[in-house]
Design a protein around this nucleic acid. Structure first.
Lengths: 190, 190, 190, 190
DNA sequence: TATGAATGAGTATTCATTCAT
DNA sequence: GATGAATGAATACTCATTCAT
């Protein structure tokens, strides 16, 4: 349980992290034009080192997605602590969108790269999906969200807001006004 | 009126249209991986023919965008005829998003290529913007849309939905369920 | 004798000349990058018209060479009138070099284009060659030029001087000082 | 001294040399029609290998020019050792022209490409110019060359001979017969 | 007859991936 | 393990030439 199949050496583990971080940076900077060589330079490692950790470019991109999902899931889980389910859900949703511009070009660039986003989701995505779902269902049970809205729509709305916020650089006011429309749409009809 | 700048031969005009259509198809199929050769094959013309009509790949993509904008603006204008302002607005909004889902990766590619998408849009874009505003205001006046929602939020929502639909390839059912939440959010509260 | 095999119509003849002139201009301007399309535009005729008169690009280039040869031959023949053979030869040689910069990029560009210069010479080149030879031999017979120098060297020297004069823009003083070395080298040793 | 900027692996260095040599061969064979692919095949390396060493075709050609200049300068300097100044000068002049005849179309291509050939030459070119001047002045002091001929004419003659030799592919015999005329012209008159 | 639209082979260049050092 | 040199398939684009209008 505590022992992994591959107890990577400390430096190897560090290199893996270096590459992942570099890849995010390069992806954000260069978009679809990002190249493995650029990632290697940004990470300060050799090209071969990347391939030691990620067999293909697609695997590297999938790992980035996985990494992001993991962080998102953590954030969601943390929100469980909040007592009131409705505000917890709204807060998490807003939080994610607000931070979207830091998660530069995520699904955006990854989608372009031909990565099967849905496949990527199935791994770490399962956990984040369930974390979000927990928040969502709790909000529904608390009567803060309509019962006839499902996870697919929710994720679609969340993704849409994130992409647009990042790409079009929504200012806080526009973000709030826009999300309010969505939250209103999610609220139960009297 | 009778004197055009370039009266363009009938077959040339036909080929231009063929190429545009083929490019849309290939772009939808291959995303950023779309190649000029693939477009030529899809169109059933030689590579050179594409370059006769569009000097660069970027120019071809910009032409598609322009074409689509033009058609969208036409559709918006046509919607004016619909007697009921509310449904006209909903129908048009849906139409635009539906359209976007087939524009996979195009705006991205253009963005990466350094093309100022907004600049490209400014021509046809100005007309489509005003067409949207007309539909929107009419819907508000008809009591189908809340008065406290402005064009900025509307465009943010439309943009977000378009991006997500395009990137994540929303199927018609997901699109409808998602847009329904937004439309509900836009509806006046009792 | 007076009746040619192809009594070209007046306009066709004019087009042929237009194309030739345009080709010289374009060749001088664009060097190896010269294209048939550019020639057509410069001439103000359609692409097809060029191909009506010259079956291939090489044929066009050969025609230019031919044209220039013809003009050179005329110039040489005119020099026959000069009474003194030695000065006539020197004058012609200098004259040709002096005017080389007007015959922009001749063998230079043509050579690049893959035209077989020697083949081109065999047609109209024969006449110019004989005209130059006449001047040369007369100068040798008059004792103004060494007997042990042949036409090949002479043409090599003439060509070299022309190319260098044109490319490096020899000023009159440099031209004279340089040609004087050559003329000295051609003079009989005492 | 012991610390180089790029210690370049042994095989990489070998490939660089292979490519340079192959490029010279192909350039001599195909002139402007030379292609990067042909160079790769001639060198027996992959296309990418050429681009690893020379970022563009132009850079490759410039490297050849530089390489040749360097070797020429060396040869000139080596000629100093020759006891007899006159023959040393003649030998070097011939050597340069001989070399030029194998440079078919290169300077041209460079010129067309917008490269300032003189600028490219300025590095290695400065040294070769001074090497030539040394040989020339020594020959004059030894009484093998006229005192009233200056460097400008000398360079003009050398340049002219190089261009013509390169363009018209002088064979060794023609080269010798032509240069003999020039050498005679440079010899002091009794 | 003149035109220029169409063609496609050919060119330089990039970049994911492999493998010798 | 790490490195970066080598590879070559793939891409955008050009241009001589043909042929329908």
């Amino acid at each position: 349980m505590t022992k992994e199949a591959k107890p990577l050496r400390a430096d190897a583990l560090r290199n893996r992290a270096l590459v992942l971080e570099a890849a995010e940076t390069v992806l954000a900077r260069d978009g679809v034009a990002a190249s493995m060589r650029a990632v290697a330079q940004q990470a300060g490692v050799g090209l071969g080192t990347i391939y030691r950790h990620f067999p293909t470019q697609e695997a590297l991109y999938a790992a980035i997605l996985d990494d992001r999902m993991r962080r998102l899931a953590e954030r969601a889980t943390t929100s469980y602590a909040t007592s009131d389910a409705g505000p917890a859900f709204v807060e998490f949703f807003t939080d994610v969108v607000d931070n979207a511009s830091r998660m530069k070009a995520m699904a955006d660039t990854l989608g372009d790269a031909g990565v099967d986003v849905k496949a990527g989701l199935s791994e770490a995505g399962a956990s984040i999906r369930s974390a979000i779902e927990t928040l969502f269902v709790r909000a529904q049970q608390a009567g803060a969200v309509r019962e006839d809205v499902g996870m697919p729509e929710l994720l679609a709305l969340l993704g849409a807001a994130c992409m647009a916020a990042e790409r079009n650089q929504w200012d806080p006011q526009l973000r709030d006004r826009t999300l309010n429309v969505i939250f209103d749409g999610l609220r139960p009809r009297p």
